[in-house]
């Protein structure tokens, strides 16, 4: 039978106007899994089920509810009696039915089954609840442990980042030193390299130094030894002095506290050939436009 014909029967069934053969045909068709006809039947049944709402409600007499209460209590009581091992406990006679005992036995069995299902259901629920609580506790512990590990990893990460930054800084310093060393090597290795000695002046008799320059490469280097490390409030200042005695500031430095020595690059004025002398004084931090301290190192470069 086609869906269209079945749906015709479905509407009759929903309206209560189908005979048993029609109902059987509908069931056989639905058993094939026809979703369209299943949907049609559900819709039709819902529509017809609302027809009683067109009727004005009739409040039943109070005796109906009283009797219903009596039946419910009777079933519950007989169920309790049966479960307590008193199968022949006195029961009230049912108001309908031809057999006296069977309804009671069936009712009691159903009630007992309900009770058993309820108890089993409660036990199952309790077991499920315990399992869920256990799982949640485990998850909390796992979360705590993971959080600790994440914190540790973060700390390690920060430490590693700091170490890497420090290493980068060291590398940068080394690169600078290497560049300087390469520059110096290049400067020294060149035939254009010139050099002058610097001698210590009282009270720094032991101080000495060298100044090297390469006119072609326009590179200057000054090395100083045995000069004490100065406090932050003071600095050594290099002066280029012309033949006419004009003193031009050429850079600041401090010596290493360990070696009391330094190698620095003086700022050479635009006309280095005019320079006749180089000198080093101690000045306030930041340097001075003209020397204020005594000359500690000096040498001729002209």
């Amino acid at each position: 039978m086609q869906c269209e014909e079945i749906q015709e029967l479905i509407y009759l069934e929903a309206a209560g106007a189908a005979d048993s053969a029609m109902v059987a045909a509908i069931r056989a068709h639905l058993a094939t899994g026809c979703l369209a006809c299943q949907a049609t039947r559900a819709e039709a049944m819902l529509a017809s089920a609302q027809l009683p709402l067109n009727l004005a409600p009739c409040p039943p007499s109070s005796k109906v509810k009283d009797e219903l209460m009596r039946r419910v209590k009777s079933v519950a009581a007989s169920s309790g009696a049966m479960s307590a091992g008193h199968p022949q406990a006195p029961t009230q006679k049912p108001t309908t039915g031809k057999l006296v005992m069977w309804p009671l036995v069936i009712s009691s069995s159903i009630a007992a089954a309900f009770l058993l299902i309820a108890v089993l259901g409660l036990q199952t629920n309790q077991q499920l609840t315990n399992k869920v609580i256990g799982d949640v506790t485990t998850l909390h512990q796992l979360k705590k442990s993971l959080a600790h590990e994440v914190a540790q990893t973060n700390a390690i990460s920060v430490a590693m980042k700091n170490a890497i930054t420090s290493e980068h800084h060291k590398i940068a310093v080394l690169k600078t030193e290497l560049t300087t060393a390469q520059g110096v090597e290049k400067m020294i290795g060149s035939p254009a390299m010139e050099m002058a000695s610097l001698r210590g002046m009282p009270p720094m008799h032991s101080a000495w130094g060298r100044v090297m320059w390469n006119g072609k490469m326009k590179m200057w280097k000054l090395c100083a030894f045995n000069l004490p490390h100065l406090p932050n409030s003071k600095t050594y200042e290099v002066w280029m002095i012309t033949a006419h005695g004009k003193k031009m500031p050429a850079g600041l430095f401090n010596t290493s506290s360990k070696t009391q020595s330094v190698m620095m690059t003086p700022h050479v004025p635009p006309n280095p050939h005019a320079m006749a002398e180089i000198a080093v004084t101690v000045e306030p931090a930041g340097g001075s436009p003209q020397p204020t301290g005594a000359v500690l190192l000096t040498g001729r470069i002209g």
Partner: peptide
Amino acid sequence: SGVMLALCRR
């Protein structure tokens, strides 16, 4: 019960 009784009576 009201609407159900109405249905039964109908």
